[in-house]
Design a protein around this nucleic acid. Structure first.
Lengths: 216, 216
DNA sequence: CAAATATTGTGAAATAAATATCAATATAAG
DNA sequence: CTTATATTGATATTTATTTCACAATATTTG
């Protein structure tokens, strides 16, 4: 089954939207409801579902609980959920203490840095020397890491991560990392995002028209 | 000229790559060099350039300095560059003190929050009451804001921002914000990104194949 | 100066993604 | 129980994006 990235990202968003709808008391939803909540079209929702074999009832929509479980199953959240952070600077530290992940079943289990002043071996989420990265990752079977080091170090550190067995990297350094064959990398570049906003605002100022909102 | 978002994002990345190439001593580049540095194909680079009317010399490539200036011009970095942050929690605070933006000509000029304990009126980058948001934004002609409040507050705060005249929002809250007609919103959802990595790692574990790296 | 060569710039082709359409059908109404 | 109706699910259509292919042309070499 060939699945593209965008489709999976949307699936994740559907799940988030479903949780909110559930909190509002929804027991079943129609593709249109979900489309509104996730900011897409109902065709898109049904198309995505059909790719994953998710089915509802004609005229009856989808049961919220079943749907959440099915998506969670597809996203594989029960198989990997421990995440480490490399680079405990501004951004890394914020993510280390970000509470939003826990609710989604993602656990930040440790931070790593090269600066001894940052080490906190006995904190709830320990901050350890980068030297210990490989052994920690292997002992704890970690597959996902967040990279939040300065740009000059990013490439080097990504190699350390990959060598240790990390298979997925969320990269905050403002360079385009290229992974190995079996490693997937998501690049988040905040400056690029801001520049993008600025461009479209300026463009709107000139033409009076603004492109529709989209992401990724 | 109809221009899509992805294309602009790439332009921004080309600029970053060019800066790095320049630092390495490059005076001119070929589309292939830039493609490698930015992780795309050379066709893509040339096509993007042709959309914006950027030209080089056949057989001579592009002059790095000219190219950087031209891209900077297109991205409009000389017109808007002041940015505010609403929500000085974990993430907001990290971004407030993130040094990476300055080099790119983006200035974080203030943070806003509703928690009086966070106010720092006389700090280098002041943290002010949300009540003062509108007057600050209007007096300082701010058009771009970063939204980093808890999800339950996100929608409400986005409305305050838009009412104050903000035209571009970089949203870190894990809900899909929908802007007004003339407001552009970029959503960055870290949990979704992590889930996505987890999905592809699990998928690779089953099939032995991993999709190529891409973003947005 | 002429010939060889590498690279751009662009239109055409291929691929991928999103949207629209509509028959099938479950639910609800009468 | 029958009819009307709304919604799915799948296919077709449209639109967008990427890649390919190659003529045009600077630059370099002999």
């Amino acid at each position: 089954m060939i699945m593209n990235r965008k489709c999976i990202l949307r699936l994740s968003r559907y799940k988030n939207a479903l949780k909110r709808l559930k909190a509002l008391g929804f027991v079943k939803v129609f593709s249109g409801n979900l489309a509104d909540a996730a900011g897409v079209t109902s065709s898109q929702v049904r198309k995505d579902f059909s790719l994953f074999g998710i089915t509802g009832n004609r005229r009856g929509g989808y049961k919220v609980d079943e749907l959440i479980n099915r998506i969670r199953e597809i996203l594989g959240k029960n198989e990997i959920q421990k995440v480490v952070i490399v680079g405990v600077g501004n951004i890394g530290n914020a993510l280390l203490h970000y509470k939003g992940f826990e609710a989604g079943g993602i656990h930040i289990v440790a931070g790593f840095d090269i600066d001894p002043a940052k080490y906190q071996r006995h904190a709830e989420v320990p901050i350890l020397p980068l030297d210990e990265f490989q052994s920690f990752v292997q002992e704890n079977d970690i597959k996902v890491g967040i990279l939040a080091v300065p740009d000059v170090a990013a490439h080097h550190v990504s190699e350390i991560m990959i060598a240790a067995g990390i298979k997925g990297i969320l990269n905050f350094a403002p360079i385009q990392l290229r992974g190995a064959e079996d490693v997937i990398i998501s690049n988040i570049n905040l400056e690029v995002e801001l520049e993008n906003l600025i461009y479209f605002i300026n463009a709107a100022g000139k033409t009076g028209v603004l492109s529709p909102v989209e992401d990724e």
